[in-house]
């Protein structure tokens, strides 16, 4: 599903060259549940952004679903993101002026899906995530857990093959965090590839496959 071949990413900060990722080789199969752990600055978010096509590698090759996506132009990248990748962020990133239902609808609107089908899909998602009675609430009227549920519903609205979650429980209390994680884990049972970035070993330990990163390199892998 995801195949990284000697992928590096370096930034220029001031007059210094900072290497965030160093020759990463990584294979992730479809339906895998992978957690990426490591201290801050170890490059785990950069790796996630690269996989999500929000960023480009400085060198190396990235293949997604068998196709080389390293050198796609902006429009092609956007199309891949729209069709194959879903994001869940630590700070939810809901559009504040839109209702929960409209936030969930957003990827469908951007993809140009007809309005009748959109309504059906949004209804189903609201139902699935227990948000039906919150459909017309704006994000500032929702609790943290509800916000993240809206964000997950939005991320899955286009039925992506890969779900990328960057510290999805970072802004939530323990109980709500566990609830959110179990929602994400349910998705892996539907054959969605889930990649979870966290610095919480307890959370990361739940994944079938765990990657540990230090200084831009994967130092160890454990499988359970």
């Amino acid at each position: 599903m995801i195949r990284l071949d000697k992928v590096s990413r370096s930034f220029t900060v001031g007059d210094q060259q900072v290497t965030a990722l160093r020759d990463i080789d990584l294979n992730i199969a479809a339906g895998d549940y992978v957690s990426i752990m490591g201290p801050s600055g170890s490059g785990k978010s950069t790796l996630l952004n690269l996989i999500g096509l929000l960023d480009r590698p400085s060198s190396g090759i990235y293949k997604l679903d068998g196709g080389n996506v390293t050198d796609l132009d902006d429009a092609q990248q956007a199309k891949v993101r729209s069709e194959k990748i879903g994001f869940v962020f630590q700070s939810f990133h809901l559009v504040p002026r839109l209702t929960a239902a409209m936030n969930i609808e957003l990827p469908l609107i951007l993809a140009g899906i007809p309005v009748t089908e959109r309504k059906v899909r949004v209804e189903a998602l609201l139902e699935n995530y227990g948000l039906t009675d919150r459909a017309d609430h704006r994000p500032d009227q929702l609790s943290g857990g509800q916000r993240q549920r809206v964000a997950i519903a939005r991320a899955t609205s286009m039925h992506p093959a890969v779900l990328l979650a960057d510290e999805p429980t970072g802004n939530l209390d323990q109980a709500t965090g566990r609830e959110v994680i179990s929602l994400l884990e349910q998705l892996t049972e539907q054959h969605v590839t889930l990649i979870l970035v966290t610095h919480d070993p307890a959370l990361g330990g739940r994944a079938k496959r765990q990657l540990h990163m230090v200084d831009g390199q994967i130092v160890s892998q454990t499988a359970s």
Binding site: K79, S82, E83, L110, M158
Partner: peptide
């Protein structure tokens, strides 16, 4: 800015 970033992440190309 955040919203624009989000739209891009959700699959909106620059032209959009």
């Amino acid at each position: 800015v955040q919203e624009i970033g989000l739209l891009k992440a959700l699959g909106a190309p620059a032209a959009q």
